[in-house]
Write a protein that binds this DNA or RNA. Structure first.
Length: 356
DNA sequence: TGGCCTAGTCCGGTTACCTCA
DNA sequence: GATGAGGTAACCGGACTAGGC
């Protein structure tokens, strides 16, 4: 069992991607793979949950839980600006001319003030608030068609009301509720890319009849919500891990007691050498050494980069080797170490170098 | 080349408004 | 109708980066 946070490829894009052929499904999608039986909170209407079941339970030996996988695509948490090739907004080419001097795609050199908020609103006001997204279709699957029509009418009315209020007051209202179409369109955009460069922001604002600042704020809040949901999923998963480990610990304690009882009743058992698993933190290889001198001569390989694949070592999951050594590995493989005594030895780097 | 300034963007946290049970 | 909870748009402050001087 391992926790996998995938920031890249997703093997299971969302269904809506099938309806957006301009964009490669490989680059899109916000997938949350959850363990079987784990149900995300149904409250969030915008929560898109895809139960990708990458079953490694058999390999890890912990119940039937697949790894929790969240594909937050295609954003990367470290680089805040991505090249334009990674920002596939299909509609951008229709609305904006690419900046000749912009090389990084982040919009550097693009004068955001060229299109003021008034201009943006003026341009957007030329069409009805919802016309920009009239071709955008999404089946929310919640309401009946009649109710849906009513809600759309209400949304349109609210949008027009907001526009008229802005015109009358000349002020921006403290808080506006985005229409359903606007939210859905922003959601689709977020799935394609969760960060915006100035061009994309302006294009979205223009299409949705919003101010660029509103689009920016929406994306910021949406990222925060995504992170919050990720945290909730992680928390839930770690909770399950803790429960599993507790149960495993209980089982091993019981097994230890049984072995001790067996040891007293069967003296030949003492002849079995104790095996120590040694894992080098730098190369992350596992070597075995037997505490018994005779056994060490036969099993412990001098070259620790060619560790002997004993039964115990072989049961160490490969995922453990890829886990950051600074954090506790969540790989809950069940190594059949009995009747060996296993321990993870963390030698100093100097030890490793001296040994090599 | 390094330092300073500015603009833009991000994030974490918070506030305030809106909706709904 | 009043109310509390939850969702979310909007704001604030700090940090970071890139470009210009």
């Amino acid at each position: 069992m391992e926790l996998a946070l995938s920031l890249g490829d997703t093997s299971k894009p969302f269904e809506f991607l099938h309806h957006t052929p301009k964009v490669s499904a490989k680059d899109l999608g916000f997938c949350m793979g959850l363990p079987t039986g784990f149900t995300a909170s149904p409250r969030s209407h915008d929560k898109v949950v895809d139960t990708n079941l990458h079953g490694e339970a058999a390999a890890t030996g912990v119940s039937s839980d697949p790894p929790v996988q969240l594909d937050l695509l295609p954003f990367s948490p470290v680089p805040r600006r991505l090249p334009p090739s990674q920002t596939p907004f299909p509609w951008l080419s229709d609305n904006l001319v690419s900046e000749p001097g912009s090389t990084d795609g982040s919009g550097r050199g693009f004068d955001v003030n060229r299109l003021s908020a008034e201009e943006a609103e003026e341009g957007a006001a030329m069409s009805s608030p919802n016309s920009a997204v009239s071709s955008f279709q999404m089946d929310f699957g919640i309401r009946s068609r009649r109710y849906k029509r009513d809600m759309e009418a209400i949304d349109a009315e609210r949008a027009s009301s907001r526009a008229s209020d802005d015109e009358e007051n000349g002020l921006t209202r403290k808080k506006l509720r985005l229409s359903k179409e606007q939210s859905a369109f922003l959601e689709e955009s977020f799935k394609e890319h969760n960060t915006l460069n100035p061009k994309q922001k302006l294009a979205l604002a223009k299409q949705l009849n919003l101010r660029p600042r509103q689009v920016e704020v929406w994306f910021q809040n949406r990222r925060a919500r995504t992170k919050l949901k990720q945290t909730e999923v992680d928390c839930e998963y770690l909770k399950r891990c803790c429960e599993t480990l507790t149960e495993e610990n209980r089982r091993l304690q019981k097994e230890l007691q049984e072995l001790r009882a067996l040891k007293t009743s069967q003296p030949f058992y003492m002849q079995l050498p104790a095996t120590t698993l040694t894992m080098c933190p730098s190369c992350e290889r596992v070597a075995t050494t037997n505490t018994s001198p005779s056994a060490a001569a036969t099993t412990a390989a001098p070259n620790k980069h060619n560790p002997v694949a004993t039964t115990a070592a072989a049961t160490i999951p490969s995922s453990a080797a890829t886990t950051n050594t600074n954090s506790s590995s969540l790989s809950l493989a069940k190594p059949r170490l009995s009747p060996f005594t296993a321990k993870i030895h963390m030698p100093q780097t100097q030890d490793h170098q001296a040994a090599s």
